[in-house]
């Protein structure tokens, strides 16, 4: 029962995150959508780990990888936003048709 609740919650988080990532114009808000999707993934992983497969230690590594991915996404994402803003003065997706320097 717990697992069902957790997985439904995770899919809701992924759905909301997908909506945000697709609909937001601002780069920063777009990244919030991505983070929310990763949040859902983290919840699903923890749910499966604790309720579905009896808690083997190596499965927690997957959660650690997801956390590392979040950190990488934030750092590189913000660095790209800063670089793009410097070069193009663009902070919304519309004003960036091409990535050519």
């Amino acid at each position: 029962m717990t697992l069902t609740i957790v997985l439904l919650g995770a899919s809701a988080l992924i759905g909301i995150g997908l909506y945000g990532a697709l609909s937001q114009q601002s780069f920063v808000m777009l990244m919030m959508g991505l983070e929310l999707m990763l949040n859902g993934a983290l919840l699903a992983i923890m749910g499966f780990w604790s309720q579905g497969i009896g808690g083997p230690p190596e499965a927690q590594l997957l959660a650690i990888i997801v956390m590392a991915v979040m950190a990488v996404e934030m750092a590189i994402g913000f660095a790209l936003v800063v670089a793009v803003y410097r070069k193009r003065q663009a902070d919304v997706t519309e004003s960036l048709g091409t990535l050519k320097g």
Binding site: S50, Q51, G54
Partner: peptide, 29 residues
């Protein structure tokens, strides 16, 4: 609209998968 549809679709699809699947039940000791 498209984003809302995509989000809702993702939620409904994943939920359907969760509800129809035979979920394992082996909690952490």
């Amino acid at each position: 609209r498209l984003s809302m549809a995509a989000g809702a679709l993702a939620f409904l699809g994943l939920s359907a998968a969760v509800l129809t699947a035979d979920l394992p039940d082996r909690p952490v000791p």
